[in-house]
């Protein structure tokens, strides 16, 4: 089963989304900040990354840029999660190299579709 790395600093969101994804049969690993996220991408080889954009230490934008610049992990798809519904945010996420983009609050069904699309 696919392994998802979920990078999120908010504890409640981490708990909530990880529970929902686990129920759907995914294997979930989690990181709390951008730097830890990058490290786990390198060490735990997840199949896909859900990256919250507002993160401490290294924010999601920067972490995504660095991930995409690293040949060893740049093939792992990243879905950027932002609270910004603006078109400019979407643009920015894609410019950073994110493979897809979704907004918070998460529409769970839509997110699942995006995960599945990127995994296949």
């Amino acid at each position: 089963m696919a392994k998802i790395l979920y990078v999120e600093d908010n504890e409640m969101n981490r708990d909530m989304l990880s529970r929902r994804l686990t129920r759907r049969g995914y294997d979930i690993i989690m990181a709390f900040d951008g730097q830890a996220g990058l490290d786990m991408m390198r060490n735990d080889s997840p199949d896909i990354v859900l990256m919250d954009m507002g993160l401490p230490i290294l924010d999601g934008w920067e972490a995504t840029i660095q991930a995409k610049a690293d040949d060893s992990i740049n093939s792992i798809p990243i879905i950027a999660l932002t609270a910004h519904a603006l078109e400019s945010d979407k643009q920015k996420a894609l410019e950073c190299g994110a493979d897809d983009f979704d907004t918070k609050p998460v529409d769970f069904k839509r997110l699942l579709e995006k995960i599945e699309a990127l995994l296949n």
Binding site: A83, H84, F108
Partner: peptide, 24 residues
């Protein structure tokens, strides 16, 4: 401003998510 928006929307994510968990 982006950060403020982000912070305000984060709890909504949990509210919606947990409600959906319970519904499921």
């Amino acid at each position: 401003y982006s950060e403020l928006r982000h912070n305000l929307r984060t709890p909504l994510n949990a509210i919606i998510g947990y409600s959906e968990i319970l519904m499921e």
